[in-house]
Write a protein that binds this DNA or RNA. Structure first.
Length: 197
DNA sequence: TAGGCCATCTGGTCCT
DNA sequence: AGGACCAGATGGCCTA
C-alpha cells in the first residue's frame, strides 16, 4: 500500500478529482494556465509568491503527515479487527469475514457465551448438580477451526440444547436489528447459532 | 457489468 | 497548535 501511496503522492493528478484542495496539489498536477502564470508573476513582483508558496508547502506537509497518521490509525484498526477474527471460531470455507461480519459475529458470539454461562449457572443452582453446558456447540467453539459443531445453517444442536439454539428473546439481535442481517444463504451459513439471527 | 468491500485522501470537529 | 477521530468521496479489485 505504501507503493500505492507513493504513486499517488508522486502522481496525484487525477486520483482525487473531487478534491477542493487544489491549491496544495495544483502545481504538480498540471502545468499552470496562462492566467495563473500571469497572476503568479504579479504576485512575485509584489513579493507575495514566496510567502504563499511557503504557506502552501507547510499546509501540504501538514496534510501529508495527517494522511500518514490516518493511514496508521486505520491499519491499527484493521490489526485489531484481525485479532478479533483470530479469536472467533473459524468457518470451514475459510472465507475471511468482512469487517461488518466480524463485528456482528463477535457481538453474537459474546452473547452466546454469556447465555451459556447463565444457563449453566441456573442449572447448577437448581439441582446442586455440576454445571452442564447446554450447548455442545459453545462448549467446543472456543478453539477456532474446531469441527465439533456443525456450521451448517440447519445447525447440529443436539436435543439437549434446544433452548439455547433457538432464538432467544434476550438475544442482542433484537427484531429491530434483523434489518442489518444479510439474507443470503452465506450469512445463514455463517450464523454462529442457528436462530440467533 | 453492477454491487460489495476496501484503502486512501480529505476537511471538519473535538480534545489535550 | 497539533493530534485523534470521524464521515464523505473516490477509485481499485473481486465476484455473481
Amino acid at each position: 500500500m505504501d507503493s500505492l501511496y507513493s504513486d499517488i503522492d508522486s502522481n496525484s493528478c487525477d486520483f482525487f478529482p473531487h478534491s477542493e484542495d487544489e491549491e496544495s496539489r495544483g502545481p504538480r498536477c498540471a502545468s499552470p494556465q496562462p492566467e495563473q502564470q500571469q497572476q503568479q508573476k504579479k504576485q512575485r513582483r509584489r513579493g507575495r509568491a514566496r510567502s504563499d508558496a511557503t504557506v502552501q508547502v507547510v499546509k501540504k506537509n501538514r496534510r501529508l503527515k495527517a494522511n500518514d497518521r490516518e493511514r496508521n490509525r486505520m491499519h491499527n484498526l484493521n490489526d485489531a479487527l484481525d485479532a478479533l477474527r483470530g479469536v472467533l471460531p473459524a468457518f470451514p470455507d475459510e472465507t475471511k469475514l468482512t469487517k461488518i461480519e466480524t463485528l456482528r459475529f463477535a457481538h453474537n458470539y459474546i452473547w452466546a457465551l454469556s447465555e451459556t454461562i447463565r444457563i449453566a449457572d441456573l442449572q447448577a443452582g437448581k439441582a446442586g448438580e455440576p454445571p452442564v453446558l447446554l450447548s455442545p456447540c459453545l462448549a467446543e467453539v472456543p478453539s477456532p477451526g474446531s469441527d465439533a459443531c456443525s456450521w451448517s445453517s440447519s445447525g447440529s444442536s443436539s436435543s439437549s440444547s434446544p433452548a439455547y439454539c433457538a432464538s432467544s428473546p434476550g438475544s442482542p439481535a433484537a427484531p429491530e436489528d434483523y434489518s442489518y442481517l444479510r439474507q443470503d444463504a452465506l450469512y445463514g451459513f455463517r450464523s454462529f447459532v442457528p436462530g440467533i439471527y
